[in-house]
Amino acid sequence: MTEANANDILVRFRDVQKSYDGESLIVKQLNLDIRKGEFLTLLGPSGSGKTTSLMMLAGFETPTAGEILLGGRSLNRVPPHKRDIGMVFQNYALFPHMTVAQNLAFPLKVRRLDKTDIAERVKRALAMVQLEKFAQRYPGQLSGGQQQRVALARALVFEPQLVLMDEPLGALDKQLREHMQIEIKHLHERLGVTVVYVTHDQSEALTMSDRVAVFHHGEIQQIDTPEGLYEHPRNTFVANFIGENNRLSGKLLSRDGERCTVGLDSGECIEAMAVHDAAPGQPVSLSIRPERVSLGAGSEGSHNRFSGRIREFIYLGDHVRIRLEACGNSQFIVKQPIAQLDASLSVGDVIPLTWHVEHVRALDPTVVAE
């Protein structure tokens, strides 16, 4: 890493481990650089280590081994209130006996700012989250979305270099959650503050982040842009966890550079991108996104041409999910925009399927007992 690049790093996890019982590691050997000004999401299922990693950065948990640095300074012995980090929780953690303005002023008073400066910063923070008219209300008089905005403003009011968010939208209904995702994203773009965000919601991670770190069993499986994770998953776990995915099991028959041929258990041969480093004869799992499969006789030049029997149509407004029996998989899904759907198709029809080689990836074999 060059010196210029090193100056772009705000947070650095170096060989960080966390164990609660001295035996099993909740976080294993975490090495992660977080860039200044980026929106990084830690994504993963429950127990994957993402929240523990965030809590170690906040100072609410202590690493069992390794070191966490903020701006080049070790945080290992720095208490939470001296880390210059803003924090937003799912339950808002607002003081119920204080008005909105008093809640926002609190972190500034703790830092001993003068009254004029406090008033100015509170006013600016309220404007930032469009709650100027609610300054004298109490949290109990606000809706969930408004309370979340206050919590956000309170985390930003003292202008920290880093803001941590732990499932902050989990308590909101779907529509409000989606609205707040865009609001937080726009706020981040405007302020340029570094955000580390924890969620188990994959669509939230894809919508909001510059980069996403996918956690599983205490390790980062892949860290990439949302598009990189979705289009180029490095292993079966990432392919299955991010978005919808058709999985087919088979054995590697041959490999030629980046491409390979896989023989399915059901007899078909598929040409795919060789991601997993398997030798001929070894098992692999194929990953194909439902929207990358073409129905009908199109894509004449495609090497991957098969047929499938339609089992079910699932109408979702803007698109239809078609469940087929194809390539030995009775749950093979194809997504079609409603405008492109052939209205003459019906359950029981056998239709041609095609997909391009670059849209199917040969990954590590699927582990059934996960």
Results as ranks from 00 to 15, higher is better:
residue 257 G to W: 12
residue 265 D to L: 13
residue 286 L to M: 03
residue 288 I to K: 00
residue 299 S to Q: 14
residue 300 E to D: 07
residue 293 V to I: 15
residue 296 G to D: 03
residue 323 R to L: 15
residue 290 P to C: 01
residue 319 H to F: 05
residue 286 L to R: 00
residue 256 D to L: 13
residue 307 S to V: 07
residue 327 C to D: 03
residue 322 I to R: 08
residue 328 G to F: 04
residue 287 S to G: 04
residue 300 E to H: 13
residue 276 H to D: 04
residue 292 R to M: 12
residue 263 G to T: 12
residue 275 V to G: 01
residue 293 V to S: 00
residue 273 M to L: 15
residue 257 G to I: 15
residue 279 A to H: 09
residue 327 C to P: 03
residue 282 Q to E: 13
residue 326 A to Q: 02
residue 278 A to W: 06
residue 249 S to M: 13
residue 276 H to V: 08
residue 272 A to D: 04
residue 260 C to F: 05
residue 271 E to V: 05
residue 267 G to D: 05
residue 315 Y to T: 07
residue 296 G to P: 00
residue 316 L to W: 06
residue 307 S to Q: 11
residue 255 R to C: 05
residue 250 G to F: 09
residue 292 R to S: 06
residue 249 S to Y: 07
residue 291 E to R: 11
residue 299 S to T: 13
residue 317 G to N: 00
residue 274 A to C: 09
residue 267 G to T: 09
residue 300 E to N: 07
residue 299 S to L: 15
residue 316 L to A: 04
residue 287 S to Q: 03
residue 316 L to S: 04
residue 259 R to K: 07
residue 307 S to T: 06
residue 295 L to D: 01
residue 268 E to R: 06
residue 288 I to M: 01
residue 261 T to V: 15
residue 279 A to E: 10
residue 251 K to L: 15
residue 294 S to D: 02
residue 291 E to V: 03
residue 292 R to G: 06
residue 302 S to G: 15
residue 262 V to L: 02
residue 265 D to H: 10
residue 289 R to G: 01
residue 271 E to Q: 11
residue 318 D to R: 14
residue 322 I to K: 05
residue 271 E to W: 13
residue 289 R to E: 00
residue 264 L to T: 10
residue 318 D to C: 11
residue 277 D to T: 11
residue 263 G to R: 14
residue 309 R to L: 13
residue 315 Y to F: 15
residue 275 V to E: 03
residue 327 C to K: 00
residue 264 L to Q: 08
residue 296 G to T: 12
residue 302 S to C: 08
residue 254 S to N: 12
residue 329 N to Y: 03
residue 293 V to N: 01
residue 281 G to P: 00
residue 258 E to W: 07
residue 327 C to I: 05
residue 303 H to C: 07
residue 254 S to C: 13
residue 292 R to P: 03
residue 262 V to A: 01
residue 272 A to M: 08
residue 323 R to A: 06
residue 264 L to D: 07
residue 259 R to M: 07
residue 299 S to D: 12
residue 282 Q to H: 09
residue 327 C to M: 15
residue 327 C to V: 07
residue 321 R to F: 14
residue 329 N to H: 08
residue 284 V to H: 02
residue 291 E to H: 09
residue 285 S to V: 08
residue 313 F to T: 04
residue 284 V to S: 00
residue 254 S to K: 10
residue 251 K to C: 11
residue 253 L to N: 09
residue 278 A to M: 10
residue 249 S to H: 14
residue 272 A to L: 08
residue 303 H to A: 13
residue 298 G to M: 13
residue 327 C to S: 10
residue 325 E to T: 14
residue 258 E to C: 11
residue 260 C to H: 06
residue 298 G to C: 10
residue 256 D to W: 14
residue 306 F to N: 02
residue 304 N to K: 02
residue 306 F to A: 02
residue 315 Y to L: 12
residue 251 K to G: 04
residue 296 G to V: 08
residue 277 D to E: 15
residue 279 A to Q: 15
residue 272 A to Y: 03
